[in-house]
Computed example of a mutant assay.
Amino acid sequence: MHSRPIARRTGLLVAAGTTALMLVVAVPASAPAAVGDIQVALGEPGKEGPLLATPHKLIRSPKDGHCYTVKEVFPDAPEGGYFRSVANQTNTSIFIYQADACAGSPYDRTPMEPGRISIGLPVLSIKVVPAPTLNPEDFRTTPPPAG
């Protein structure tokens, strides 16, 4: 006698759960920031002492596609200031530029991978490589041919 209401309740719960799942999947997500930090050290013309004695800053959770310049990270940097070192401690790659505002080509066509460091180059700007967008069509599978 109680089997019909229980089955009906179960069916309603499954339908509600499926609808909630579809809503969660359908909500678009914003572009994520890189997880981790980029550590930079300020270089000044004519001051090439020990790297530890130079001002350091962390760019926390840098935004994908954003160009970080010396003046943005070190607002009080002297004229001719540059990033003396750049350490990529994020989960994504970055490009380093010897031009201001990420102009022109990056220093290297291959982006600097996570865990890498650049020391000694006069880097004027850095840019986080945006994560690739995944196209659901790329993951469709087709059944094997009937044989």
Rank of each mutant, 00 (worst) to 15 (best):
N88W: 11
S30Q: 12
G11H: 08
A20G: 06
P144R: 14
V35G: 01
P114K: 08
G36V: 10
G36S: 08
I117Y: 02
V27M: 15
L52K: 13
D64V: 04
K47I: 09
E137C: 08
Y97W: 04
E113V: 09
L58E: 13
P145L: 12
L12S: 02
V129Y: 01
L121T: 13
A29Q: 13
H2W: 11
Q89G: 10
V40C: 07
G43K: 04
P132E: 09
P130F: 13
K63G: 02
T92G: 07
K71P: 00
P62S: 03
D138Y: 06
F95N: 02
R8S: 04
A31L: 07
L13G: 00
R116D: 02
A146L: 11
A53T: 15
P143M: 03
K71G: 00
L13Q: 07
F83M: 10
D76I: 06
A31Y: 09
I117N: 06
D64L: 00
A131S: 14
I96G: 02
A103I: 00
R109I: 08
Q89V: 06
G80T: 07
G104I: 03
G120R: 06
Q39N: 01
L121K: 04
V73P: 09
H56S: 09
Y82P: 14
R140L: 13
T18V: 15
T92E: 11
K57G: 00
A77H: 00
Q98N: 12
A15K: 05
A15V: 13
G120A: 02
S30I: 09
